[in-house]
Amino acid sequence: MIMLFNIVYQFGDALSFLLLSAIGLAVIFGMMKIINLAHGEFITVGAYGTVVSAKAFNLPLPIAMAFGVIITIIFGLILEKLIIRHLYGRPLDSVVATWGISLIVSQSFLVIFGPSLEGLQTPLGNFKLGDYSYSEYRIFLIFFAFILLGLLYILFMKTSFGTLARATIEKPEIASSMGVNISNVYSVTFAIGAGLAGITGALYAPTMTVVPSIGQAFIVSAFITVVTAGASPFIGLIPAASFLSAVQTSVTFYYKATIGIIALLFSVILIIRFLPKGFSGLITKEK
């Protein structure tokens, strides 16, 4: 019984990490097709916003987290206005610009805040089952990841804004001729993506060492999850992340973590080869 719970806990933990890594990128890369190499830095902004506001104004953690997310949204909006909007339609060039942004952000944080921030304590407590003990916050993260994804699915698939956003990104000219202010739709969608990355940063900030490079811990996981999720990222994310985390946790369990990572990367290669439309293609049957 405990063994089973352990397996679920480990699997859920890895799954929520992949989901939360990917969630902002699913909007910015999955939908908007911007290869955002600065995704990690958006997460960094969220984490720093949270920790700095918690320390500076002595805010309770949830409010500090909200603060961190708001800062990331503002940051995303500014970036969109200054740089990103000039890159729509040339996705490959976005590689260089976002790489540049990522260099600027992480190094600016180093200059401004020094090499590391004093950490926060992980909220909630822990509980025991037999010989094992578990962090309650980790279990909260698993549930939160699913709720967030559900909300996102509703936003983009079930609301009129969602339809508008998907239509605009798919066929900007037509949307524009129908009277849609496409530039606003782009801005808002990008800001949502940035805000989601900010949420990831805010959520993981109390569990990790807060350094300027904190976001880089998420970047590879984010890209592989979004890519294997396929063309409709909000449908494909959960199956993709489940599959990848199942591979990683089981291989890590039987061999070691390094082999787990190698297996993870290999399965990404094989998924792309044999499921070119990703997991969402498998579900929506549009092969």
């Binding site: 950490g119 304590q121 992980t122 407590g125 822990n126 025991k128 003990s133 578990y134 962090s135 916050y137 980790r138 109390p206 569990t207 990790m208 060492t209």
Partner: peptide
């Protein structure tokens, strides 16, 4: 931080 949160001790 993570081992402390999990109460490894």
């Amino acid at each position: 931080e993570q081992q402390a949160a999990a109460g490894l001790g």
